[in-house]
Design a protein around this nucleic acid. Structure first.
Lengths: 216, 216
DNA sequence: CGATAATTTGACCGGTTGGTAAACATTACA
DNA sequence: TGTAATGTTTACCAACCGGTCAAATTATCG
């Protein structure tokens, strides 16, 4: 047999697992930096420290690599939202969701940029994922937020746009990192940037969602 | 003479101006959709309705086209921030800044995505612009916001991260349009989406920046 | 060890890409 | 109208890119 990619569900050799890991790591590096079309297989092979045909032995096409990567990233990317707990304290839940998303932007900027690149260019490969699992998850959590609002625990607001705004503000620090650094000046320590952001976003969202008397 | 690109500052013929305009329009379309490396000169030429060599007669390289486009977009992109008025009512100024940025995301999504693509991939061609004019403008407006906060007109907050959060939340509707549509479902009218966003963002920022008693 | 399967490599291929050369057409203008 | 500058097109090229192939090398295991 020549093709390891076949229906063999059993992950055969340890070497296979190692190589595929190295490839996906390299692919993440290159794809997140140059986008799908901007990345070349030779580049990925070089970063992975192997020859191009060797790489193509494990992933038969460039697209297969990209698919594997996107699927994996998209899955872990939604973990913070999944942890969003309907039974918890609303303000505490929102606060910790913001914090977790911001930590992901800090610790996994490449994953964030990979995803941003994909969506920015029309998400040709993950449209189904977005309209299916992602939408379902957001719908579920939006309902929770709406219930909190109706119970008077937070201000009444559009839960979808609330989620969008948390996504955008936090991922901004990964996706637009260059711009953020340019504006702030790079004299600032890495952590400082994220600590300030966390403090500000907490203030913004907690303040903005605070219940206030609706009487005019 | 063969090369129109030379030091002739005089915009010679009307035909030159028209063609360059058509080319930049086409380039914006293609670059914003596929990124720099994903775009091909043939594609741009086709959208512009001319042959590739003809296009290359006006812009000698793909990179020259991209540079011209980025410079122009970056300039108009900052107009809303320039209008930010220190003498105005703080809350009204912030509200109208958000509205203008959101209108730009709605009316000029290609410009937003072109810029996002560039920054996302490390902004290799505009780093100087970011660290120079952009930073200077943001510094200036951040000082204004800080003064408002110190005067007790809005809550004390980090002005830089406030600006970042307005950028990110508004541009999100252009850059991540596909995702927004997927989550909301495309049954919704285009305007509705932006009206809801405007309402939410106004609530978020005005509420979040409202002065409240600092006593614990 | 011997044999079979898994892995790795260098050489190569057809298609695409950014860009050029030069002939041809059109416009501006004396 | 003549002519020189400007604009346009056809044909083309070298480099690059994703991917293949067959041969060589290495791991696995009875």
């Amino acid at each position: 047999m020549v093709l390891p990619r076949a229906a063999k569900t059993q992950r055969r050799t340890r070497i296979q697992e190692e190589k595929e890991e190295r490839i996906l790591e390299a692919a993440l590096e290159v794809f997140s930096l140059h986008g799908y079309r901007g990345a070349t297989v030779d580049q990925i092979a070089e970063v992975a420290g192997m020859s191009k045909p060797n790489l193509l032995y494990y992933f038969r096409t460039k697209e297969a690599m990209h698919r594997a990567l996107i699927t994996r990233v998209l899955d872990t990317w939604l973990d913070p939202l999944r942890e969003f707990d309907a039974a918890g304290n609303p303000v505490a839940e929102i606060r910790s969701y913001i914090r977790r998303k911001l930590e992901m932007a800090r610790d996994f900027p490449r994953e964030s940029r990979l995803f941003a690149n994909e969506v920015l260019q029309g998400a040709p490969n993950i449209e189904d994922e977005l309209k299916g699992p992602l939408k379902a998850l957001v719908d579920e959590k939006a309902a929770v937020i709406l219930a909190w609002a109706k119970a008077g625990k937070i201000a009444k607001c559009d839960p979808y746009h609330l989620i969008f705004s948390i996504w955008s503000t936090t991922q901004h620090y990964a996706d637009f990192d260059v711009q953020v650094r340019a504006v702030l000046g790079q004299d600032q320590a890495d952590d400082g940037r994220f600590e300030d952001a966390a403090r500000f976003l907490e203030q913004l969202f907690i303040g903005g969602l605070q219940v206030r008397d609706q009487a005019s």
